[in-house]
Design a protein around this nucleic acid. Sequence first.
DNA 1: CATAGTATTTGTCCTAGACAATTACGGTTC
DNA 2: GAACCGTAATTGTCTAGGACAAATACTATG
Lengths: 313, 313
Amino acid sequence: MNTPTLAPAGLPIAAVERDTGLAKDTLRVWERRYGFPLPVRDSHGERVYSPEQVDKLRLIRRLIDQGLRPAKLIGLDPQALGQMLDELGGPRADDDPERTAHFQAILKFVRLHLHEDLRRTLQQSLMKTGLQQFVTGVVAPLNHVVGDAWLRGELEVAEEHLYTEQVQNILRTAISTQTSTTRERPIVMLTTFPDEQHALGLLMVEAMIAPEGACCVSLGIQTPLEDIRAAATAGRFDIIAVSFSGAYPARLAIEGLRSLRTALPETIALWAGGAGLRGAERKLPGVKVFKTLEEVPAALHAWRRDAEATLQP
Amino acid sequence: MNTPTLAPAGLPIAAVERDTGLAKDTLRVWERRYGFPLPVRDSHGERVYSPEQVDKLRLIRRLIDQGLRPAKLIGLDPQALGQMLDELGGPRADDDPERTAHFQAILKFVRLHLHEDLRRTLQQSLMKTGLQQFVTGVVAPLNHVVGDAWLRGELEVAEEHLYTEQVQNILRTAISTQTSTTRERPIVMLTTFPDEQHALGLLMVEAMIAPEGACCVSLGIQTPLEDIRAAATAGRFDIIAVSFSGAYPARLAIEGLRSLRTALPETIALWAGGAGLRGAERKLPGVKVFKTLEEVPAALHAWRRDAEATLQP
DNA sequence: CATAGTATTTGTCCTAGACAATTACGGTTC
DNA sequence: GAACCGTAATTGTCTAGGACAAATACTATG
């Protein structure tokens, strides 16, 4: 663990590991093989990475998460990397200039630390459109906008935190007002696999389900597979929903979902979604894979129809 | 990153690092120096740790967090380690058998995955005693009970998650109903230093402050020092509150708080608390160090008195 | 009892090699 | 053109043991 510091002239390898998510071993082997990053050394011969190197590593990391390979990226300059990200991000659906302006305004609140304005604006959006619309139409695209801005270095870590916290607060509050009134079936468990840290995706799913009158229980992030299985049967759950962020390796997600599917009773449905599952639908028989959050309410309705049909044959 | 698995006969070194918080390098050097843990090797010569070894490592880790040193612990058997923890945990203030029974009942709900009962019971406690009393009298001691149970292997990870999530939900909801009505000074920023993952402590502080009518803004966990400083001045904060869990090294906490104190304007107060700051009060001039959450409301009142005195000299 | 100096403990970094798992590629078949 | 297969290149993570500074414990001295 490294001393928290105010003026980081350069970062030691442990800090870079934290900031980029690239293991120390990986950083060293890249240096050996590709010649980047080539940090300077301090008086003890230990690596000291410049902020620029860390920025570039962050870009590379993000592109690798998108499926590209290190060798093709590591020689490029940061500008080219940023451009690749733009193109890969897909055709920005910015056809609505009003919405875009709205998002930029919110992003400005985040940048200027105007927490009250941020909170108020989000709250107003929520009230205007309702929880589900708020999630699909505001939170989801905003996440993209904020994520991109952070990647480009336009946001500080604290600012990204501020955003995430405020959104989580609003979603949690909204969800809890929903849940207290209704306790219908299905009973849904929400969680992520180990090594998956992103709670926001989970919360968004919960926000899509709660208004439908279903009973949601979130185990939070990073639940071991065996614990999910045990809790699933012990808690009489109808549906287990697992979310994967873009940073989660698709291979592990598929593998884990498969073994979980086998281990779970057939009566319990397994739902999965998130950017980490791009194009994995057909590799996962028996698992309901969601491409977008919009599909969630329909899937819930379908579950209820099936349940009725089974009960009254 | 390791494949999530259902039947872990043994864990690879990366998984042990995740589960115990001990770095791979540390695990290898302990093996070299002390002969423990001595994992078996798979067909590729790679370490495979038994669940028992991991359990013992967890115990050792916790005791090290309490200030003990590896050499004295590593030879002991798990039973002796557990006993040390009991003694170190201090004289259990279990003088009230009714309260103890209440906590055990809640712990049972957690163990049996009775999320609804858990939620209802906590909610009732909250309603009966009020938010501040709920935090100091229920949540804080419950955290100890749950933490101990988890350490002893009586709880699964998922169960500990379930507890944390439910408590966070209840606190967040309670806080948000408080905040929406009042926006008085002081404006308080809440966060933790990098490498500090525990959000619950932060939330408990917020719950102590919000009913006093102050304006709380949580940046969430792991904010870099420089970002705290920048956000502090940009957001016109009166107080910066930082929380440290028991696992956070006291040295780093002190060091970080000192440099933050120097970097902040004198008009901004710096508050700190949590198990990570045991006996560090006098090493931190200019920083208000909290031993317990009970002190928080009084400190707020004191701040307001001072503020009035300054404004009307 | 405090304080300064010395010895021990301890975590993290270093180098450099190895290898399995993954991905890319070229050829073949339907 | 799409799906499959075997081979080649790529890539992350593990291995070993050495080194050293920071943190802690111990000891002598005021």
